[in-house]
Amino acid sequence: MNLEHPTYVFIKMTAGVLATVGLYSVLYRETKLYRFFEHMFLGLAAGWSLTAIWTDTLKDQWWGQMVGKIDEQTGAMKEPAVWPWAFVVPMAFMAYLIFSRKHNWISRIPLGLLIGLGAGQTFLNWFNLYGPQMADSVKTIIPTTFSSLTVPPPVNGQPDPNVYLSQAINNLIFVATLLCVLSYFIFCTEFKSRFLKGMSTAGRLVLMVGFGAIFGSTVMTRFALFIDRMYFVWIEWLWRSVLHLS
């Protein structure tokens, strides 16, 4: 079947448009139309997952490796079979013993292996990930010169190593903000002193300002998803496929 045939592409797109309209109908209210597309979506997702697990994971990366490959013309072994892959089968089935009330402890073995693998990598990479960000948080808070309040334009394109007053104040605000926010996330003690309480409250306020800024930025994504669906319905389907306009 030629999946690129124009008729097939058109049917596929029309189905996509119907599904889009069906799912968006929930914005009016939950109707049978929405319920139909919701269940279709769930069914497709379940079917897709099953197929994807076999074709993209198990077939090539486990079965193919385990049984090897034979040259159909000569009958010779083209790729050797790696039989130890068979050992992962009982290991995988151990995970299913989670459903047994008596033997569910066995399921912890493969799970433990996976968690151990993840934890080992985390220990290895923790500093690689957070070290540079901690380094970026170490700021010079004492000005080295008072010749100018703000950073003057670079001379001959050379970076100026000096710390100017405005930079020092910025850096101080950064470090203070960091400490306030960290203090908000300390749970092992109740802050009694007014200073520490104030720090924690300031931390919460700063967090809220930050979340507001994040909200503003991330709202773009929500709109982009909607705009993309509308583009699909109006331009890709109606404009180009139905009306054949350029």
Binding site: I214, T218, M220
Partner: peptide
């Protein structure tokens, strides 16, 4: 855009 604010730190730190 959702992931951007979190990732900006990684750009600033040179990662």
């Amino acid at each position: 855009g959702v992931m951007f604010p979190e990732q900006l730190n990684y750009f600033k730190s040179g990662q």
